[in-house]
Design a protein around this nucleic acid. Structure first.
Lengths: 264, 264
DNA sequence: ACATCTATATCGCCC
DNA sequence: GGGCGATGTAGATGT
């Protein structure tokens, strides 16, 4: 990581550093005393105070006060940023964008520190419990679906696609299960419907279709009823805990758990 | 602002500084290379990368990557934070909370810079329009109040105080208008009532009283009815748009507008 | 269809 | 009733 720190710069040096940083699309952290003005879909004003201003490498701007988890003002990366000295007043920074037309203006009266540099971070952000993870957990725990269920096949090919789970219920009905990680909508229902209809045409037995999702849109519920398909809510949190505990025995405290987890 | 900067600290020094900062409820900005683990309502994992971690004075934790306006991970201020060295691996930071039970774990493999200090920021954050701005806009646009209204005076002194707007309706009734920037409550109604009663005693004509606010408490509505006063909801958003377009002819670019605004 | 982005408002919950 | 946190999603928009 290539970066530099400017401590207690005069405003001219600060201006120079910020301009260079902006030109090179570097990340800037500016710590200083400032006023803030925002106007756009809403509007706000903030008096003088010591704050952290972050300008990211894609132009996103954040203003953070010393407390609270959310920024007091911000501007997404669709921003053009200008910065200039306003003699006798301070250093003015304007982050503006057109759609929607909004501006964020920051007037620094003092700048304590500027950090300017390039951050390298190409790691992928992974949300746990992907659809396939959910499928695996359900497959390993058939009772989560319904008592006496017999899991037969994951990703069973049907027509062009593949249904997440194929199995038999306690009455030996064929069952196709489609899983969604997010709220089940009409589209998910139709997807399941296509599998069921396609599969039904090849067998004599009754074929059930079940949609599994953390929640369902009203439209999806309506369509499920109309198409005589079933649904079941899954609790992602419980699923996660289940997948953990199946891997190892539970710890008495969160911190113990954390420490163990750290040692993996 | 009292703060210090640690450049390229070894992990022991970093640990010491972070612990001190946490103990004193100081704000910490940690720039380093780290892994992130989150687990709670959802769960996520993020591989190695250079990031900014901010621990605020109330314990809120933010992790920012070099791009994007939103934090990749965070923890609100209801957090307890622990930090320790994990030999051969790095510096581990755990921010956990109970309701909902969630943890955020950061493992720093390198720490480039730490800023630790106290930020002073007691300024009030004001959203939307000020009461006087609202008053001015309404005054300039009488039809917003009601068709055919004639504006006569702003801040008309009545007794000890001053009512926001005084004017005549289309039937030449005297009208007193009290404006509130936030939800109108009983107190606002009483304020208006006092003006109306006070003013009424000096004139023969009918005197109307109108309370203007973005919304009203049930108690306020009840009291308004009882005191035979009127109310009208104002849409702050529309007002703001109106004030923008009426103030000036539109500028060809946002920057022109900004520069003009800056010279005020 | 898909991914990517954004929320500056509202709701709900805790105090 | 007020203040703060959630939306660690839902919807919207662009490709």
């Amino acid at each position: 990581m290539a970066y530099r720190i400017l401590e207690n710069p005069d405003l001219e040096s600060a201006l120079k550093t910020i301009k260079e940083g902006l030109m090179r699309n570097h990340l800037l952290i500016i710590i200083g005393e400032c006023y803030i003005d925002y106007e756009g879909r809403s509007a706000s004003k903030l008096g003088l105070g010591e704050r952290i201003v972050i300008i990211k490498q894609d132009g996103a701007v954040l203003v953070h006060r010393p407390k609270g988890y959310s920024p007091v003002n911000w501007q997404p990366s669709t921003t053009t940023i200008e910065v200039w000295l306003r003699s006798g007043e301070g250093l003015s920074l304007l982050a503006a964008r057109n759609r929607p037309c909004e501006y964020l203006r920051i007037l620094f009266t003092k700048i304590f520190t500027i950090i300017e540099g390039v951050f390298h971070d190409s790691a992928e952000f992974v949300m746990y419990l992907s659809e396939s993870e959910i499928r695996d957990i359900i497959f390993e725990n058939p009772d989560l679906l319904e008592p006496g269920f017999k899991m037969l096949e994951k990703e069973k090919r049907i027509g062009q696609g593949a249904v997440d789970i194929y199995g038999l219920d306690s009455n030996n009905n064929h069952v196709l299960v489609e899983i969604k990680r997010v709220m089940g909508d009409r589209e998910a229902v139709l997807q399941l419907y296509n599998y069921v209809e396609n599969y039904r045409s090849g067998v004599e037995n009754n074929v059930r279709g079940i949609l599994l999702a953390p929640s369902f849109t009203p439209g999806a519920l309506e369509l499920l009823a109309k198409l005589k398909l079933e649904f079941k809510e899954i609790d992602l949190r419980k699923l996660r805990l289940l997948s953990q505990s199946s891997k190892k025995k539970p710890n008495s405290t969160l911190f113990e758990y954390m420490n163990e987890k750290g040692r993996d």
